[in-house]
Simulated scan of single mutants.
Amino acid sequence: MARIGYARVSSLDQDLEGQLARLKTEGCGVIRAEKVSGGSREGRAELATVLEFLRPGDELVVTRLDRLGRDTRDVLNLIHEAEQRGAFVTVLDPHVSTRGEMGHVVLTVLGMVAQMERRFIKERQREGIERAKEVGAYKGGKPRLDHDRIRALHFAGSGPAEIARAVGCSRMQVYRVIRV
């Protein structure tokens, strides 16, 4: 029986260290971590790896339920997949495990709360953006690429691959900018 930890944060600027330390303290011999949104299972390679390698008697450990996902259906499907492999899921905060029947009920409720919380966050964010737009304070997200530099390099005769290397993006992004 192995205790396998899974840690996740939503964005690159967030820190995994607190989750990793807690999982190590809890005795997880293997810990997989990633920086990706929990809104869906898309692009969550580390989680897929953990699920694939769960064996009967293993325990998947997360610090909080929302680390598994923000959608109730996804969380319940993850728990079901772990159980199909004969493994258990344990959430450390609050401490709940699927080893007992009551754990399933509590995890279902916590999953619904996580999904509801995600909806509230999105709603508050949308309202905040609308208020900022009304007063002229909202400028949109930070530009990810320097479009002027890409165009300048293009007009100077640089090819898309060379521009992509210089700017640190893909050729497809270069094509999109120079097409406009």
Rank of each mutant, 00 (worst) to 15 (best):
Q84G: 04
V109E: 10
P143T: 15
G111Q: 05
E34N: 04
G140N: 08
R124I: 04
E46W: 02
K122I: 08
P94G: 02
R126M: 11
M116W: 13
E162I: 09
R99V: 10
L145G: 15
R144G: 08
V109R: 13
P56Q: 13
S158R: 10
A114S: 11
H95Q: 15
L54Y: 00
R149L: 06
E127N: 15
M112E: 10
H95W: 13
R151F: 01
R67E: 13
V62D: 02
L107K: 13
E117L: 07
V30E: 12
I31E: 06
G141I: 07
R144F: 03
D74S: 10
G29L: 09
G111W: 02
G27S: 12
E127Q: 15
N77F: 02
L107R: 13
F120S: 08
R67V: 10
I129Q: 12
D148E: 12
T98F: 03
I150A: 08
G69Q: 11
L23N: 01
C28T: 10
A161L: 06
G128D: 12
G136R: 00
R131F: 07
R151Y: 00
A45G: 02
E46V: 02
A45Q: 04
G111M: 06
R151E: 03
G140Q: 09
L76E: 15
F120D: 06
R73V: 03
E101I: 14
A33Q: 06
A156L: 02
L54Q: 04
R119E: 12
A21L: 02
